[in-house]
Amino acid sequence: MEILTLLKSNKTLRTATIVVLILLILATLPIYTPDYTIVLLSSILMYVVLTVSWVLFSGPTGYISLAPAAFIGVGIYSTAILGDSMPFPVVVLVSGIVTIFIALLVGALTLRLKGIYFTIFTFGLLELIRHLVLFLELHLTGTRGRFVIAQDFITVYFYMLIILAVLLLVTFLINRSKYGLALRSIGQNEEAASHIGVNVTTVKIATFVISAFFMGAAGAVMATRWTYIDPGIAFNMFFSFMPVMMALFGGMAHLYGPIIGSVVFTYLEEFLLTKLPELYMMLFGAIFIVAILYLPDGLLGVIQKGWAALMRKVRKDNLGGNHANS
């Protein structure tokens, strides 16, 4: 009973409990669900990781980055090159760290730009890195692609789950800290933020780099599932647009918006791809356009509106009941 009252009074604790419970359920899933579900869930988890780490930086600051595919690609290539020269956990970690260095470079180059210039420049960098890798591969190794040491799908699933758990924790801690406030102030008015003592460059680059680490790590894990990669697969611009679309689809006002968005979006993609392959992209595009036009706050907005209406109704019913009693 005491635990229940504590959970009722402390919102953070309540949210944390729910998240831990969900993660625990996800962790035990492989015991009683078919393999296909686990493979699908790995994809969903990957997109959740990409979207949440994208929102970590781009959500509060409003800097729309199209660099995710570059960071995922770097993670993928790190895994491909490292192969089985070290244990898999170390490979994932090293891939993340390599991504950090690339993100530092990209961040230092691009974060002085604002608005559309930043967006276009990050997209340009993605293309630049892709062609650079292709050029190096052709001239140094003489081949176009590489084989990646495969991991079984259960391993992929668990690594993705662990990355997601760490990412959620990091996002929660950043948002709650003073740096969360600073990031939002940068998004609202960067000049004013710098004039009240926020070191805007450092805060921006640090967050950009943290978000890139998770994208790189996710790429490193997914690489083992694809077994063969080349620059076109690894640095696929699709991975830059998906997090943006999923975040918009879910709504960015709260952390669970992007999560809901990426879960529903990935499932939808999988459903359309398997059930209606010839109409897949058309329907996908149509659904996205409808969502943008009619769900300005994303799925989150719909849920919040529904919840508020429900609460109003409950309160009204309660009031009616009280009157009857008195």
Binding site: K178, L181, A182, R184, S185, A193, I196, G197, V198, N199
Partner: peptide, 11 residues
Amino acid sequence: ENVQVALLFGC
């Protein structure tokens, strides 16, 4: 929050 940021970073 506006004033809080100033206190946390500028004071």
